[in-house]
């Protein structure tokens, strides 16, 4: 005999609670915090070296960040699904060389960029298929493809090199030109970033990426096509790494078989510093982009302040640990806050 308590009158309206806003705020804050750190760093540097924020200075900052932001955006998609793509550096390298070869052979710039993107799509598909079909962790699979793609790249490229002299002048100008201080490349990255963020927030399949990263088993039971979504995330990630390869070529005009070597670690750092959790299901591409901006800026800030660039790596490492620590503390705080709120409501 189940005992029945008197029914309470249904609440007239479900109140907007402070708990949600708190969580919202914390996540926004996370991005805000990186932005603040970034701005403070820039301000301090500017104070110490008034040349730093010249038109060319700003342009350099943005140009440096562009490639990383692009790749980090793609990587975020994968990390949100509780996977990782370690082969992005290799993909970037091989796409850059392919685009360079195409241009060197007299090809059209649009065709060259499309070629780089397509090559990236191919690498992404390969990763996606291996991860979604095989029962092997993404870390292992993409570590494998990292070496495979790099190996193919080395065999194909050999000791050859593509330099700015091999490229059409227009392409190189495009790589360094822009709307006053804002480079064309940065605008491309921004457009990609905005589109991805919009997609993740407003489209069903975008939300499903978060869902399957948050609880893969529940995602399967909810009828989400898990494999298809993972495949898509890897494909987009590959495509963006390919695009980044083409832009790398435009920016630096210099590609060899070592291009993009070790880049995956920088990308993963940017993503983690930006608050995209490795456990899947949370974070935003804006965060990842800001993380990328912060990491690349450190490279420009230190020389401008006359600090040796040997410090860059150490500082990146500290930032990384700091970011993880902050995440952990924030998560605990939020959990406690939600609990208290719940208790009061009950």
């Amino acid at each position: 005999m189940t005992v029945t308590a008197p029914d309470h009158a249904p609440p007239a309206e479900v109140p907007k609670s402070s708990g949600t806003r708190l969580v919202d705020r914390v996540f926004k804050m996370r991005e805000l915090a990186i932005l603040v750190v970034f701005l403070v760093m820039i301000a301090v540097t500017q104070a110490g070296n008034s040349e730093f924020l010249s038109e060319q200075g700003i342009k350099d900052l943005l140009l440096n960040a562009t490639i990383l932001v692009l790749v980090a955006t793609g990587q975020s998609l994968v990390v949100i699904t509780r996977n990782v793509d370690l082969s992005v550096g290799s993909t970037l390298g091989i796409s850059a060389f392919a685009a360079g070869t195409c241009l060197h052979g007299g090809g059209n710039a649009v065709v060259a960029i499309a070629l780089a993107v397509l090559l990236g799509v191919g690498c992404g598909l390969l990763n996606g298929l291996l991860v979604s079909l095989g029962q092997v962790p993404a870390l292992v699979v993409t570590l494998g493809t990292l070496y495979i793609i790099r190996g193919i790249d080395s065999i194909w490229v050999g000791s050859r090199q593509i330099t700015a002299a091999d490229l059409p002048g227009g392409f190189v100008d495009f790589g360094s030109g822009g709307l006053s201080a804002i480079p064309w490349l940065a605008l491309i990255a921004l457009a990609v970033l905005l589109a991805t963020a919009y997609y993740l927030k407003h489209f069903g399949s975008g939300r499903e990426l978060y869902a399957l990263g948050s609880n893969p088993e529940a995602a399967r039971l909810a009828g989400i096509p898990v494999r298809k979504r993972i495949l898509a995330a890897y494909t987009v990630c590959g495509a963006l790494a390919g695009l980044a390869g083409a832009l790398y070529l435009a920016r630096f005009g210099n590609v060899d078989s070592g291009t993009g070597n070790g880049y995956e670690l920088t990308v993963v750092s940017a993503v983690v510093v930006g608050g995209v959790a490795f456990t899947g299901g949370s974070g935003s591409v804006y965060g990842a982009a800001l993380g990328g901006l912060l990491l690349t800026s450190i490279n420009s800030v230190l020389p401008a302040l006359g600090v040796s660039s040997v410090w860059v790596l150490a500082i990146n490492g500290v930032l990384l640990l700091l970011a993880i620590a902050v995440d952990r503390i924030v998560a605990l705080r939020v959990a406690a806050a939600l609990k208290k709120r719940k208790a009061r409501h009950a």
């Binding site: 609440p11 479900v14 109140p15 907007k16 609670s17 949600t20 919202d24 939600l338 609990k339």
Partner: peptide, 12 residues
């Protein structure tokens, strides 16, 4: 007849 905020995360 329950008072749960639709925007609250399911965690916790």
């Amino acid at each position: 007849g329950v008072d749960l905020d639709p925007d609250r995360p399911a965690r916790g």
